[in-house]
Deep mutational scan, measured.
Amino acid sequence: DVEPGKFYKGVVTRIEKYGAFINLNEQVRGLLRPRDMISLRLENLNVGDEIIVQAIDVRPEKREIDFKYIP
């Protein structure tokens, strides 16, 4: 289970104008929005990159997770 405030290693699987989709595993995916990136820009991410993200909002009923990147 993903818990708000905890850090997780994930893989960038898709990049859109509104953010990057990060997979923690095959069943768990969330969104990293540009506003939640500190010292990292969306255009510097590539599909396949491994990054450490912090879960900031977890909505299991909608199967949605918002992430934050903190270097």
Results as ranks from 00 to 15, higher is better:
28 V>A: 08
11 V>R: 13
45 L>P: 01
22 I>T: 00
15 I>V: 11
25 N>K: 06
45 L>H: 01
9 K>C: 11
44 N>D: 15
64 E>L: 14
43 E>V: 10
33 R>K: 08
59 R>A: 04
39 S>W: 11
4 P>N: 10
57 D>R: 15
11 V>L: 11
3 E>N: 09
50 E>Q: 14
4 P>L: 15
47 V>D: 03
66 D>E: 06
56 I>L: 14
2 V>N: 02
52 I>A: 04
16 E>I: 08
36 D>Q: 07
64 E>G: 07
52 I>Q: 06
33 R>I: 04
60 P>S: 11
31 L>M: 08
59 R>P: 03
69 Y>A: 05
58 V>M: 06
52 I>M: 11
2 V>P: 07
56 I>T: 10
24 L>Y: 02
63 R>V: 07
71 P>T: 08
59 R>Q: 05
69 Y>R: 02
54 Q>I: 13
68 K>D: 02
59 R>Y: 06
31 L>Q: 02
47 V>I: 14
12 V>K: 00
60 P>Q: 10
20 A>N: 00
29 R>V: 13
38 I>Y: 12
6 K>M: 11
50 E>F: 15
16 E>A: 13
2 V>Q: 03
53 V>A: 02
40 L>A: 08
17 K>S: 14
8 Y>C: 02
71 P>N: 08
23 N>E: 12
59 R>K: 07
71 P>I: 07
14 R>F: 07
52 I>C: 11
26 E>L: 12
56 I>W: 10
25 N>Q: 07
43 E>F: 09
47 V>N: 04
18 Y>V: 07
4 P>R: 14
46 N>R: 15
31 L>N: 01
30 G>M: 04
51 I>S: 00
53 V>L: 04
42 L>A: 03
41 R>F: 10
58 V>E: 03
24 L>R: 01
61 E>D: 14
1 D>L: 14
20 A>S: 03
4 P>S: 11
21 F>K: 03
56 I>S: 08
6 K>D: 04
25 N>S: 14
68 K>R: 15
51 I>M: 07
2 V>M: 06
60 P>N: 10
28 V>S: 07
21 F>M: 08
29 R>C: 09
9 K>E: 05
45 L>C: 02
44 N>Q: 15
49 D>Q: 13
59 R>V: 05
47 V>M: 07
18 Y>S: 05
62 K>I: 10
63 R>K: 14
24 L>G: 01
27 Q>K: 15
18 Y>Q: 06
65 I>N: 02
60 P>K: 11
56 I>P: 01
10 G>N: 00
61 E>I: 10
70 I>G: 07
45 L>N: 00
62 K>P: 06
16 E>W: 11
45 L>T: 02
29 R>T: 12
38 I>F: 10
41 R>H: 12
67 F>Q: 02
63 R>H: 14
14 R>Y: 07
58 V>H: 06
15 I>S: 01
9 K>M: 10
44 N>P: 03
6 K>L: 11
61 E>Y: 07
37 M>G: 03
18 Y>C: 05
